[in-house]
């Protein structure tokens, strides 16, 4: 491990219009670092999905992104309700989002599956009633 850069973002709950600000900021930083555009794309999509999930289900949370020589690690932590059935939540199209959220075009049940698809490692740590921490890695 050489140098490491860490960026922390606070994601506000209940504000759809602002979801995506954190992933956008990370995207621009990665471009300035000269990271391959395919890697940037994966990080941006996975992080955006995570951000949206935090807004929909957990009233916001915190995202920490660390960039090292080997990978980009995103840790998304919230104090939301937790995920009761991870296996089910990982199925494409499965969603517990409220109807009002779905009518906005979100909550299509692709969030977690996309996060997994666009990252090289993903780990979900969840406790019902306490919150969820998702760690994702994209290799450089």
């Amino acid at each position: 491990m050489g140098d490491q850069l860490i960026f922390t973002y606070i994601v506000d709950g209940d504000d759809f219009t602002r979801a995506g600000e954190a992933s956008s900021s990370v995207k621009n930083k990665l471009k300035m670092l000269g990271v391959d555009s395919d890697v940037i794309r994966k990080v941006a999509i996975a992080m955006y999905e995570g951000e949206i999930n935090m807004v929909i289900h957990a009233d916001g949370g915190t995202i920490t992104v660390s960039v090292s020589d080997d990978d980009i690690t995103m840790v998304l932590s919230d104090s939301g309700p937790g995920i009761p059935d991870i296996e089910k939540a990982m199925q494409e199209g499965y969603s517990t989002a409220k109807e009002e959220v779905r009518s906005l075009g979100f909550g299509a049940g692709m969030g977690l599956p996309n996060m997994k698809r666009f990252t090289d490692e993903m780990n979900i740590d969840t406790v019902i009633g306490q919150g969820t921490t998702i760690t994702m890695k994209v290799y450089l």
Partner: peptide, 8 residues
């Protein structure tokens, strides 16, 4: 990349 990381 290494240089950019340090600079950032």
């Amino acid at each position: 990349f290494k240089e950019s990381l340090k600079m950032m």
